[in-house]
Design a protein around this nucleic acid. Structure first.
Lengths: 118, 118
DNA sequence: CCGTATCCCTTATGATACTG
DNA sequence: CAGTATCATAAGGGATACGG
């Protein structure tokens, strides 16, 4: 059993890292196929995408629905628990956008080709 | 200049990782000396603590106030920008606590010796 | 289309000893 | 007390090729 001393650490265990929060956030706008997500987040590799989705599913934040057909079709969507993170993810995104705006002058941060989903 | 495609990534750049958000959260309850923080977060090494504080300061989230005396005294406190993250950090902490409670039955997550600050 | 398997590299983090 | 330096290790992530 993993031990933590505060809820913050737990949350980070679940959505921390480079991709988990981001992928979950994309799913908030509705069920998505693997290939859709890959297109939405071009920088993610297929390996990391699948691995991230597995992690999120294992944590109970994401549902995986498989259609038995050829070619295969799989859809991911947030569970209720996953949905409960929506406002937080939105705030995190918003805060970062404002921060980047302020810091843009210093030439430190820049948000390029912001996706519509955000 | 670092490029991002969404605010979420920016926020994670600033408070992501194992310690940054946690240390910042602890500072929310008021200015703290280095040694205080170390006591509050026993698992962090001195190296990581100092490094984390430096990062937070460089991002403009934390102020470092040095008193010229012997033995040295240094106090860290959140800037206004840092303060603006307070509600988000609280929600992240709260969400994790609830999650851990729910998952406790599965024997996956446990929050031990929760600090008063949380 | 979806997912797996390797191999490799970078980065983040940790242990420890040391200085003003 | 606050901070630095060095070395070592672990974890995360990326590139690529392959399979059902």
């Amino acid at each position: 059993m993993k031990k933590f001393s505060c809820g913050y650490e737990v949350t980070m265990e679940v959505i921390g890292g480079k991709w988990k929060g981001l992928v979950l956030y994309f799913l908030m706008s509705g069920p998505k196929r693997t290939s859709e997500l890959k297109r939405n987040i071009p920088n993610i590799t297929q390996k990391m995408l699948i691995q991230t989705l597995k992690d999120l599913e294992a944590s109970g934040l994401v549902n995986r629905k498989m259609y038995n057909q050829v070619p295969p079709k799989v859809e991911y969507s947030p569970t209720e628990l996953g949905e409960s993170l929506k406002p937080i993810l939105q705030e995190l995104c918003l805060w970062g956008s404002h921060f980047a705006e302020q810091e843009y002058a210093e030439g430190e941060f820049e948000i390029v080709s912001p996706d519509e989903a955000f």
